[in-house]
Design a protein around this nucleic acid. Sequence first.
DNA 1: GATGAATGAGTTTTCATTCAT
DNA 2: CATGAATGAAAACTCATTCAT
Lengths: 209, 209, 209, 209
Amino acid sequence: MTTVDPGLSRLERRKAETRREIIDAAFACFAEQGYHATGIADIAARLGIGHGTFYRYFENKRDIVEHVIDDLITRIVETLGAENAPDAVDTLEGYREQSARIGEALARIFAEDPRVPQLLIAAAGIDDAMRDKMLDLFELTTPLTAAYLEHGVQVGYLRADLDVEPTAQAINGMILGSVLAALRDPTPERQARLSAAIRAVMYDGIAVR
Amino acid sequence: MTTVDPGLSRLERRKAETRREIIDAAFACFAEQGYHATGIADIAARLGIGHGTFYRYFENKRDIVEHVIDDLITRIVETLGAENAPDAVDTLEGYREQSARIGEALARIFAEDPRVPQLLIAAAGIDDAMRDKMLDLFELTTPLTAAYLEHGVQVGYLRADLDVEPTAQAINGMILGSVLAALRDPTPERQARLSAAIRAVMYDGIAVR
Amino acid sequence: MTTVDPGLSRLERRKAETRREIIDAAFACFAEQGYHATGIADIAARLGIGHGTFYRYFENKRDIVEHVIDDLITRIVETLGAENAPDAVDTLEGYREQSARIGEALARIFAEDPRVPQLLIAAAGIDDAMRDKMLDLFELTTPLTAAYLEHGVQVGYLRADLDVEPTAQAINGMILGSVLAALRDPTPERQARLSAAIRAVMYDGIAVR
Amino acid sequence: MTTVDPGLSRLERRKAETRREIIDAAFACFAEQGYHATGIADIAARLGIGHGTFYRYFENKRDIVEHVIDDLITRIVETLGAENAPDAVDTLEGYREQSARIGEALARIFAEDPRVPQLLIAAAGIDDAMRDKMLDLFELTTPLTAAYLEHGVQVGYLRADLDVEPTAQAINGMILGSVLAALRDPTPERQARLSAAIRAVMYDGIAVR
DNA sequence: GATGAATGAGTTTTCATTCAT
DNA sequence: CATGAATGAAAACTCATTCAT
């Protein structure tokens, strides 16, 4: 996914490639069996390398899981960032469409490969630092969403009295909920209904006018 | 917390008490150090009992964590159930107040003792069965919330076109988000703002009318 | 089996009775599950007594197995002794009949309750002292058999050049073999054929005259 | 004892060697202290290796004792097989000599290293499967001896009316008895007398003609 | 005297990490 | 540089034995 940097000697390139492979193998192992149930030997075996070799590329087990998670976070953030352009939208209609697009992008990451949310959940249980990293990831999305809201308020199609940041958090909570729901029932129809409900709540609220 | 049943011999009472103490000690250990970092010896040491004694009360490590989590879930569900009375509310205003009350009850459980959400998160990483139990817990709240919505629609103060169940999930997602947010920033002001924002989104939506 | 001594107070009689019951229960447990697989709790549970009570009657696990085995040996030796009367037989024919009778008595002990040889074998594996006790039991039969041979030689129907003691050992070896064989194939026909073969070897040898 | 297969890489050879060493060390430990009293740590310590290393070569304690015993049985069977050639003997005299040779071969195994019979006895007490394996070993010798008898009957120097198989069992019982006797009194004179007595019983019987 | 709750020594087993080849 | 053999810390779990009730 992340392409290997160019301009390196062949050896360095090969090394970076192996690192990549180890990260991918570790990702698969951790997601499938969990962090503690995964042994370094499992990761190495999946790649067909000696497990001593692993230690030439990563310090220790903690190190690799750190990299796996960071890699994952990078991918998620990149995906979000790619779709992210709050100031490119100037009407409520356009905004609704943008919301749907971002939702789809997230679905692509989370629902397409259920190992992704599984690993994120599992990671939160490794230790305090990891749990914090996961919470950070969740919090990190707040400003992204907040930027949209802010823009919408300024342009005038969102309520002027929005408490932007907490509102962004609330919205992201709904997205998180849909990611978790997808783990139990990943049928597209279900996802679509949930996604529609989220947008309905967001834009119209639930109260009768 | 849960009081020990009466009408038992002194020995039986003492035994039930010890079980309770072990569950509480295990809760503390798991929440503070995580499941894997906690040894049976740690739990026993915290209570000042021999670690062999532990095995007189619980089958094994898996057994105790199961009980700790089930105990926790019971407490949460009981709390929710106590505040739960969808048909006791007949106006939108009453409904808003009820929402606030439930939110506060949850805050009492989660924010008062941050070890509770910490443990729930950590538990999700233990194994597949535990992760599913946690997701179940999250899903379990859907019908509770849905019952409220359903009632509100019937009485007429909620929009007739609500897709009730997914909407309930969306709302619960916001609540989950606020629980997670509380782990990072547990200041009451922050919580209050978030809670207010959730209710604002719920009832009014974010769009300008 | 061994009757409880009379002339004791009621309490003493009760105590002796409980000892007997514990020995019997332990015999059953050791024979069925083996010495190491048997816990004191198993023995107590089989009797429906508390396992603390066990220690009022026997020092420890080693103590009980010692008593179980000694009890068993006593029973075997008594059985052998009851049939044993070398000087009551004065003809080869009578001798052959006597052999058959002893063989049957042994079969009654060993074949009737296969737990007996099973326990003796298992006991030999407990520790050096026990193994020696089992070997002692085997050796102990040598003088019994030797007495018969001696008598037969003196009376004149057995070969004068018999090296009595080793010959007795050889004969007892055949008996031991038949006990072991009975464990694998306890059908009476098989036992009868083996018993007949032993007597044929003993009295006639295998060589053509 | 069993030589390590050639034609292997140095590492493979070293590995096979270590396996052998572990089997030998385990043999010594089991024979000296018994199966249950022997810890994996004892076996490892005797070799000066870490006890984790043990688990690179054998699954668990049961696995190693299985190998130790199978190894022992193989050695015994090979020894018996090497001396075994029923049809190479055509006279009663040759037959008697052959018997003596086999007896000596067994004595070499059993009497030379008393740990061998000790281990076989101890093994019988490990569990049901092991006890059966030991009884199998004893039974396995029946057809070997029976083949000799059969041949002798056909050639004509053994009684035509022999019930061959049970007779073979009876003879093997005598041999077993002598093995056990050797454990208590391993003096060669004693062994020689017993061996002579066995042959006397076999060929001539004990009765006066 | 009976009981069974408590205890902890002792064992097996796993696996991250090191390092000689 | 890759390898996997070796290692031992660490953890779960059992059960004989003690002793307060």
